[in-house]
């Protein structure tokens, strides 16, 4: 095993622990935004898609890279927008002051 691989493996293992630790604290009322938010985060594959399209030498690589870029953009943009829309709706009763102005107009 090369040193580089070992370094990646280290990052992988530590991230897995961080992920498990943080997510176990998310309350169940936020599980849907959690899914959709983490969904947006794996949209980071867009960075990978850019790199392969940016390195493409042949037509086949270009076509595949282009498709990958479109799919990844759908994932990342759609994911963040939908999560934001969901979280916007979670309003408590106490922090009414900052948001209530526009709310009270609507029936």
């Amino acid at each position: 095993m090369t040193n580089v691989l070992l370094q990646y493996a280290t990052v992988l293992v530590l991230s897995a622990f961080v992920g498990t630790e943080i997510i176990s604290k998310v309350p169940s009322i936020l599980h849907t935004p959690l899914m959709s938010g983490s969904n947006a985060i794996h949209g980071v594959i867009l960075v990978g898609a850019m790199l392969i399209l940016g390195a493409a030498n042949t037509n086949l690589e270009e076509v595949l890279g282009f498709l990958a870029c479109i799919l990844a953009t759908l994932n990342v943009v759609g994911g963040f927008v939908v999560t934001d829309r969901m979280l916007e709706m979670f309003k408590g009763r106490k922090p009414k002051a900052p948001v209530s102005k526009s709310d009270e107009v609507t029936p």
């Binding site: 580089v4 990646y8 990052v11 992988l12 991230s15 897995a16 961080v18 992920g19 498990t20 997510i23 176990s24 599980h31 959690l34 899914m35 983490s38 969904n39 985060i41 794996h42 980071v44 594959i45 960075v47 990978g48 790199l51 392969i52």
Partner: peptide, 21 residues
Amino acid sequence: TLGSNLLIVAGILVGASGILL
């Protein structure tokens, strides 16, 4: 494959959260 820590971290975070959920 691409040698990107960013992809590894983000991917595993999501993988861990998905499995836990």
